[in-house]
């Protein structure tokens, strides 16, 4: 189990780095758009860069699904954890495993409709860049599959006792 956890951690660190990079690309794309509309005309250069918006938006969609998958590695999705914190550790673990089962059901459905969606959208292209929209839509089933793998490892860690349900904080920003 230790070995599995370690490998999973490494893979998730890599995915997290990719996710951070995608956010950076989105940021740079929007910054480029501001330059094009706001700064360049002052220098007499008038160009349009409608692709910046699509680049920013599409990378952000990937950020969401990959990022959610990474958060599930340590159970850090925003949740109401009062019961987990109040209950004795044994009960907390059982409740948490129940919640993990619900999540597995959810991401199973998401993966299934995600692949259906990709199959159905094969003809769609992006309005400006004219790339197949499936480059964007694939994020949902891919993210869901990684999420499922992470949920299973998370549950196994609770079962073998290498992780406490009430251990991790939640990344809550409201």
């Amino acid at each position: 189990m230790r070995a599995i956890s370690r490998i999973a951690d490494r893979i998730n660190t890599l995915i997290a780095a990719i996710v951070g990079m995608m956010l950076a690309i989105s940021t740079i794309a929007v910054f480029a758009q501001i330059m094009v509309r706001f700064a360049l005309p002052k220098l007499g250069i008038i160009i349009a860069a409608p692709w910046t918006e699509e680049v920013a938006r599409y990378f952000m969609v990937w950020v969401v699904f990959l990022g959610v998958a990474v958060l599930l590695r340590t159970g850090r999705l925003i949740a109401v954890e009062i019961v987990i914190f109040m209950a004795p550790p044994r009960i907390a673990n059982i409740v948490k495993l129940g919640a993990v089962a619900v999540c597995l059901l959810f991401f199973g459905i998401v993966a299934a409709i995600g692949f259906d969606w990709v199959a159905m959208s094969a003809i769609e292209v992006a309005p400006v860049m004219r790339i197949p929209m499936n480059w964007v839509y694939l994020s949902m089933p891919v993210g869901a599959l990684i999420a499922i793998a992470n949920l299973i490892i998370f549950a196994m860690e609770i079962i073998v006792g290498s992780r406490q349900a009430a251990g991790e904080g939640v990344e809550a920003v409201e």
Binding site: V19, L23, V64, V68
Partner: peptide, 13 residues
């Protein structure tokens, strides 16, 4: 960047 991206992902889900 990584932390902000992960927090955003959690909210946007």
């Amino acid at each position: 960047f990584v932390r902000s991206a992960l927090i955003s992902a959690g909210i946007l889900l």
